[in-house]
Design a protein around this nucleic acid. Structure first.
Lengths: 127, 127, 127, 127
DNA sequence: GTGGTCTAGACCACG
DNA sequence: GTGGTCTAGACCACC
């Protein structure tokens, strides 16, 4: 039941490998990709997305070092989503990183926490 | 009443010119720098901060393009902070950009608005 | 009295053929497999372990080259464990190889032999 | 007082990038490279060692992710050796990894801890 | 077929 | 000058 639709933008400021990596990571965190599921081969994936083999290789390399997938020569690259705690922790850490950036900016602009809560609701409605 | 203390980090991932630019911009938005105030000359500023003249030139160039300062040959670089509404709007836009990124991430991770408010308070306490 | 329980891991960084080979070799060195004992046929073994026939063939080939088994067409693959001295020597050589690597690392990190003995005991307890 | 002599072997089973990475890491751990010291540029280093630019790039990338160096575009790659605890911990972890491998092997070969201590002394003398 | 390593180029932003 | 990203190939071991 693998669900993996990757969209990449050449105009984005984010590097290609990061765009792809984040979308795979997000799919794992949302549990759209199950534990043990086989990801596309490096060669197939690179031709599908029209990017270099090396770009996909980098995506799989970094995901493996972060513990989200496991690559074995001759077999392929598999999703590791067995550790539910890791998944929940990772989600919180990702959100926290963005919150820290937001709060730092708010503080340098003399904006208080109540105003921040108000704007959060407003922007959430519009998004 | 000019208040301008710039601190730069060589290990930060942000480029030097951006670090300096953001701090000047923040000082203008917080109204620590008044309308018409004269900023340091490119040469003095670059020696004070121990960075290249080119780096400061880029800071002033970009700030001028964004409408925060005005440079006149032979006279110097002046703060443009006359329009109070513009300043308030600019602050909101900066915060909104970060909020949009935060909310997009939260949605892709299946995190709801209440949880986001809770985490905002928690991280705000720690920061 | 042949005792041969092979366990393989798909997430291990070691290749399948090496995992299997090491376990057979270890069983011979520990004398769990006796001299002259008949190992499973390539076909049976490969279906039992759910690996390719080529993988088992490679295991038997390498074990034969190292002198631990003997394969005869039409008869099967037999354990060669007659020379007890050879077995003891092989065990020591395997351990020595790892010890050399350990000591080289310790020396490049300026760690002395006493500290090494201490850590050996500590890690041995935990393992 | 930078001391950085890298030797690489094309016949080693270890990949080039790992050989180079380990030697730099070892120099940092032994404090032969000081905090803040500038490492060779990617281009110079690659021509000095006669390897591809990408190989050196990978070395610096991984060392940065592990927290041993910091790379900044336009400035270079610097040694981060300020955290003494990290350095001591890293040394112990590296030794522990090898000890675990050694002990696992010893156990599968029915070799006890006393014998291991004896062999450690013997091999240490010879090495 | 698969991933792992390596090469020899290129263009970009930063200083 | 520097590192960061990306491309288009290649050879190898493993399955």
């Amino acid at each position: 039941m693998g669900n993996l639709n990757i969209t990449i933008s050449n105009t984005s400021e984010k590097p290609l490998y990061e765009q792809i990596k984040e979308q795979i990571k997000s799919a794992i965190l949302k549990q759209e990709l199950e534990n043990g599921e086989l990801l596309p081969s490096i060669r197939n994936f690179s031709t599908d997305l029209s990017v270099s083999i090396l770009t996909i290789r980098r995506v799989y390399d970094e995901l493996e070092k972060e513990g989200f997938v496991s690559s074995r020569a001759g077999k392929g690259t598999f999703v590791l989503a067995g550790n539910k705690d890791l998944i929940e922790d990772t989600k919180r850490v990702l959100i926290e990183e963005k919150l820290i950036g937001l709060i730092n900016l708010a503080k340098t602009l003399d904006m208080d926490i109540e105003e921040l809560h108000r704007m959060l609701d407003i922007v959430y409605e519009e998004a």
